[in-house]
């Protein structure tokens, strides 16, 4: 019996190892590429841990003044688009949940199903006509396509599970519907708002397709900036990998720190942006 259990344990450990290693090895290799000089990156057989660490790859990427512009652009676009989505989406999720307006959810579903590129053609023409191209506004506005549905979708689900009794008690005490929302529903919904906010930030930060069409030289976000580095810098892998890590590190840290919230949000709505 105990031999059997030991065998089960070894089997489980092996299975865990097999499952987790593709992800772990990939990111370790990514880190390895980013801290190696060209000579190590182009050697065969490949070197995993080099003798000398090329920290200068990171320094080079961070020091280029454009990169800090793009970093700032990413923060502005993601920050504004996520904040606007929360401001508009949380009350909307509340309203939809309380009126049982399930048909409203269909619009959200359509937004979830539609390819991001479909929005780009009409909105590109609209932004051109409004003279907004060249500013960050087109990207902020179009990122709402990603962030608003995520927030509404998660908040509908969340408000449907919060108890009605407290709100009804507040109504009996003479509170207006805004007061009920502000002082009763909203405080209870804080964990749901965190989930919605985290996912909105991640999918907006990662978004690439909107940027390649709408971003100019000065208004690129980080994913677009990294993509442009590929075409110009095909051969120097070290700085490229370093840039890739800098772009995705905030998201990876958020994933490991807030994995519980992320999993709740993803399984609740099975949402993904873009």
């Amino acid at each position: 019996m105990s031999a059997r259990r030991l065998l089960d344990k070894i089997g489980l450990a092996l299975a865990i190892f097999i499952i987790v290693s593709p992800a772990v090895l990939f990111f370790l290799w990514m880190a390895s590429l980013s801290i190696k000089y060209e000579i190590d990156n182009s050697s065969y057989p490949p070197v995993f841990i080099p003798d000398r660490f090329a920290w200068k790859n990171y320094a080079d990427v961070l020091a280029s003044n454009r990169f800090s512009t793009y970093f700032l652009n990413s923060i502005i676009v993601t920050g504004t688009a996520s904040l606007l989505a929360l401001v508009a989406g949380v009350p909307a999720g509340y309203g939809i949940a309380r009126t049982n307006a399930t048909k409203a959810a269909i619009v959200i579903l359509i937004a979830r199903i539609t390819p991001g590129l479909s929005y780009l053609i009409p909105l590109f023409l609209l932004f051109q006509w409004l003279g907004l191209l060249g500013t960050l506004w087109p990207q902020i506005i179009i990122h709402l396509v990603v962030t608003v549905p995520i927030v509404i979708w998660i908040m509908i689900g969340y408000f449907e599970t919060t108890p009605l009794e407290l709100e009804e008690a507040a109504v009996i005490d003479g509170a207006t519907s805004w007061q009920v929302f502000r002082h009763v529903a909203l405080p209870i919904a804080r964990p749901g708002i965190a989930v919605a906010g985290i996912l909105a930030v991640i999918f907006s930060w990662n978004n690439f397709v909107f940027g390649i069409v709408l971003a100019g030289r000065e208004t690129r976000t980080l994913p677009v900036a990294v993509y442009n580095m590929i075409s110009f810098d095909q051969l120097s892998w070290g700085p490229l990998a370093a840039a890739a890590i800098i772009v995705t590190l905030p998201v990876l840290i958020l994933t490991v720190v807030a994995q519980r919230q992320i999993i709740v949000g993803l399984t609740a709505g099975s949402v993904k942006g873009g």
């Binding site: 987790v20 290799w29 590429l33 990662n206 994933t255």
Partner: peptide
């Protein structure tokens, strides 16, 4: 378990372009 699950879901949360770049090198 929680930590390993966090590691396991990293590929889908990571920035796709950054991922694509490294896969291209691989």
């Amino acid at each position: 378990r929680g930590f390993l699950r966090g590691l396991f879901i990293m590929p889908m949360m990571a920035t796709p372009v950054a991922i694509a770049l490294v896969w291209t090198m691989m």
